[in-house]
Nucleic acid binder design. Sequence first.
DNA 1: GGCCAGGTGTAAA
DNA 2: TTTACACATGGC
Length: 213
Amino acid sequence: MIRQLFDALMRAYGPQRWWPGDTGFEVALGAVLVQNAAWRNAEKALAELRGAGALSAPVLLSLPETALHALLRSSGTFRVKSERARALAAWWVERAAFAPAVETVELRSELLSIKGIGPETADCIVLYVFGRPVFVVDAYARRLLGRAGVGWADAGYEKLRARLEEELPEDPHWLGEAHAVCIAHGQATCRRNPRCSECEVRRWCVTGRVHDQ
DNA sequence: GGCCAGGTGTAAA
DNA sequence: TTTACACATGGC
């Protein structure tokens, strides 16, 4: 049932080519910068960093605090994110090269031990940077499942993630697309308007289709 | 002007 | 274990 819902969404929205980024570090940094921010604004900060030649961990670490603040300003909460970006960069310099040899569970807990990396951000990195099969639980996924009538949609992060990973393919590419269509669908439907909860997801429950036609 | 965006850490009950 | 709040910019 969950599997079929995602399949329907994937058919409706098509391949998403997500997550964007030229390097692993850029993708990981993007996951930090998008925290509680619109992607558009996170992207601006990444562009600023690129312009400054600071889209690499060692260079980012070498920047004075004030310079980093200025570059990250457009992503919001820039003082907080400067510290988080640095913590990530420090881990990157030290550990990223060893990551391929580390078990997924271990890699995940390493990332979670970095200050400023919580479960969602860690899973984005584990999935999109290191290609491990994890389901990224975000607000969109939660809302989607809730509207589809999934009873355990409001369970805690770990519980929800485990349950979804149990039911879905253990395939990083598929799970990446699954996360991406949650976002595509979430952004295509109104976030607050209650009518939207009567929208495509509910219709899917009846017709097996996300969109008409 | 007000509300919100692909969250997390901390403090307090 | 749960809840409340700070963090701060940019778009609508």
